[in-house]
Design a binder for these strands. Sequence first.
DNA 1: TTGTACGCGTTATCAA
DNA 2: TTGATAACGCGTACAA
Lengths: 338, 338
Amino acid sequence: MTSQRPIPTLQDVATRAGVSTATVSRAINFPDQVAQVTRDKVNAAIAELGYSPNFGARAMAARRTNTIGAIIPTMENAIFARGLQAFQEELRSNGYTMLVASTAYQPDTEEEQIRSLVARGADALLLIGYHRDPAIYDFLDAQDVPVLLTWAFDPAATRPSVGFNNSAAMQEMAEKVIGMGHRRLALISAETAQNDRASARCDGIRQAMTAAGLDADTLCFVETKYGIEEGAAAFDEVMTHDPSPTAVFCGNDVLAVGALRRARERGIAVPGDVSIIGFDDIELAQVVYPALTTVHVPHREMGRKAGQALVKHLRDGTALEPIEVHTKLVLRNTLGPP
Amino acid sequence: MTSQRPIPTLQDVATRAGVSTATVSRAINFPDQVAQVTRDKVNAAIAELGYSPNFGARAMAARRTNTIGAIIPTMENAIFARGLQAFQEELRSNGYTMLVASTAYQPDTEEEQIRSLVARGADALLLIGYHRDPAIYDFLDAQDVPVLLTWAFDPAATRPSVGFNNSAAMQEMAEKVIGMGHRRLALISAETAQNDRASARCDGIRQAMTAAGLDADTLCFVETKYGIEEGAAAFDEVMTHDPSPTAVFCGNDVLAVGALRRARERGIAVPGDVSIIGFDDIELAQVVYPALTTVHVPHREMGRKAGQALVKHLRDGTALEPIEVHTKLVLRNTLGPP
DNA sequence: TTGTACGCGTTATCAA
DNA sequence: TTGATAACGCGTACAA
């Protein structure tokens, strides 16, 4: 049982340094407003006491927290982890702290997390995708909390975002695939109901089909949850379709890797019998064999730019501008002629 | 320019409901202490105003935050992401919120993040591994913040942890490998300087060698940063050793996957020419070809149990007990006879 | 350059 | 069951 000395406060530091609390506060927040000697005394007292400012009190008095919240579907998905890591590094180097929360793709949970982060005093929020209950946007407007969306970019959208055009990116890949002669196409997609990125990618394929004179309704479409195992099961389903597809698009690399594994297990040659195409270009894509053809998304760049944009907005009060980042086709070895 | 109505406070709700702030506070925190009719009026007012309590003020007045901080090396590593996801789910279902911060394996950054989370009022902290400056533990004790360590388990340690015995786990695998007849061993390790898990795994191999009558100094040891590319480069280095190893242990699956890829690129057969062994059993391990032999770590179980332990401690005030979780050898296809 | 004093929004104690 | 009120620790006019 150690004798519990109480946590030191500003007042304790002030007493110890023989100055007022106001001076200590200034010494911390505006060092050049206080005389050198005074500052030294204060710093010494802070060090001796092991003082660190109370966040709650500070937030209440200053009415800002230097904290930015980020809400993602799940940390278990490498793409979000990577984007957030870059986002955080950017914030950190500008004196901001990131608070993360995850939603498991549940809109209710997202709303709850938004309220929680706002209550915690987040100065701004980073959210994934455009689609959510308008009431949430109203709430954020009412609370005067700036919001930046990411992972999607729609020039026509009213809310600013830092992201890429999911539809156009997938369309470009589909055009490539169709250009190679593929006609019987399939798509293994993440669940589209609450996920505007997934549905935009799906639209991209249909548009490419229509533009090439194919009937978009012939696309063999299967929706599934996120996961390697899920991708494998969906691949089975897709291949039972008659006529069977010669090219299988996947909404993300994880699904594609599952499909690829199942193809090997079934003795189906890739890309000999069927081509498999991913989306995201996570590390996994280069490691599987054959290496996965996919759409590269600059996750780190996106996270970094989102961080820069938010910091600038908070500092200078300038409007948040939409920023588009660009995807790129990565043609590896799972795509071949039909 | 919408007219900015101010953010509602407890006082606003009280006025609107025609009661005192004390009653509103109780209606929120101890609903059964207030009359049904009063409660309804208060809830109505809360809904109409869109009120949500100010976290800072609450923390200051209540002297707790229902928040638990977690500090990990990096979110980009799937093992931490997965463990934290489970940890968070457990906290959430008990009314606690998780705050994450990451350190990029920098002790200085970790210390900074610890102070930041404590200042934010974290009721407890989850940290990875045992090894850190004693001054940090002193600080946490002084601030009266409970700490639970994880990802490691040492029965002799003074601080409670929820984790597994890194050394014993690797030793078990090494015994298996040696038992198959391997004598020329190599280890590609994560950097051991600030990472007690990495050095424990290394010790495990040496102990198995000594126990089997081998000279532990013959272990070909290479240290590298985290990453697939880094694993590949380290594999090159290890294979130039003379005599070249017949079995290459890797400190984690990501390094192992890099080694595996490089082996394929070099035309080195696995496990024909050399065996490769990973650690962690992340999804990657089942997806590569040949599937990776590795040590399974129950990351989700570990995260969940850590969450349970911390919640119980905070609620009941009982001491934090050490909890060991168990690893398991997963013999897939990259390990064969020498 | 420094100090005084008030207010931030909530919880908790004590009375009523 | 409810209300008045004193903390909680800090930032910041304003004054000196």
